[in-house]
Design a protein around this nucleic acid. Structure first.
Length: 266
DNA sequence: ATGGTCGATCTTCGA
């Protein structure tokens, strides 16, 4: 099964680019974040034309929004939490009906957290930490994940080489010690395996996002790994390959995040 | 230390 995740930063603006992702990655399932599209305006037919017969979306006006596009039939998980009681369209869970049995798939868009890494003066940072803490408690209550995949823009780069400069980003939201510990606790709570670091050793740089604000994103290469693929322990042995579609950052009208794909046996 | 660029929506907010 080929599972991809991409923060598309407006699904309507970048609808044609989904075709390029399909051409380059051939995903069976594509999870999107930051669709920025209310449900009644979601371009279902345009996406179905790329071969995704099964589509679920959870969106709102202007901000956030997640969607799952799939060639594999699925049912939407109905009883997952309304994180932080905000109804802000940051998670969508489905159960995929694979030939070998059901696989749960979770698509997350964790709050970015604003600019100041202090929960007492920045409510966005407090929301980010609360959101991750709720996810951690949710996984802890359910025990180790089984036949499950969790993907998305988690907006945290946990490892030293998930950022271009560990030292210079220690105080920058996305790489602060409190965030790194929070995401590590979440990962432990579900016994999740970091699929990208399964393929790329921890001492090698690994990025999935490059800021729009850089003068020359490719030359300066000041990236961060904000997008993740986690798998449950029982699926870890079946991890087969990964692709970071870095070329997508150079496309016309690119998202600041690039698509990430993992192929695994289920 | 600062400011840099996007997208949605509506002049500013969130990233």
């Amino acid at each position: 099964m080929r599972v991809a995740t991409w923060n598309i930063n407006s699904v309507r603006l970048r609808l044609p680019l989904v075709g390029d992702v399909v051409r380059d990655l051939a995903p069976d399932v594509l999870c999107l974040q930051e669709t920025k599209c209310p449900d009644d305006l979601f371009p279902v037919e345009g996406l179905r034309a790329f071969g995704f017969e099964h589509i679920a979306h959870r969106g709102m006006k202007g901000y956030n929004g997640v969607a799952i596009l799939s060639r594999i039939p699925f049912t939407v998980r109905a009883d997952d939490p309304n994180w932080c009681e905000k109804g802000d369209c940051r998670h969508l869970g489905v159960t995929l009906a694979t030939p070998s049995g059901p696989v749960d798939l979770h698509d997350f868009y964790v709050p970015a957290g604003g600019d100041i890494a202090d929960r007492n003066v920045n409510v966005k940072f407090a929301h980010k930490l609360d959101f991750v803490a709720e996810c951690t408690a949710w996984n802890a209550a359910r025990g180790p994940a089984r036949r499950s995949v969790l993907v998305g823009d988690l907006n945290i780069a946990p490892l030293e080489h998930d950022v271009w400069s560990h030292k210079q980003l220690l105080d920058v939201v996305s790489h602060t010690p409190v965030e790194v510990e929070a995401i590590a606790a979440w990962q432990r709570a579900g016994s999740w395996h970091d699929a990208l670091r399964h393929f790329v050793p921890a001492d090698q740089k690994l990025y999935t996002w490059w800021s729009y604000r850089a003068r020359d994103w490719e030359a300066t290469d000041r990236g961060r790994r904000l997008d993740h693929v986690w798998v449950s322990p029982d699926l870890a042995a079946g991890l087969h390959s990964h692709t970071i579609l870095k070329a997508a950052r150079g496309w016309e009208r690119a998202s600041d995040h690039v698509p990430v794909l993992v192929e695994l046996a289920v």
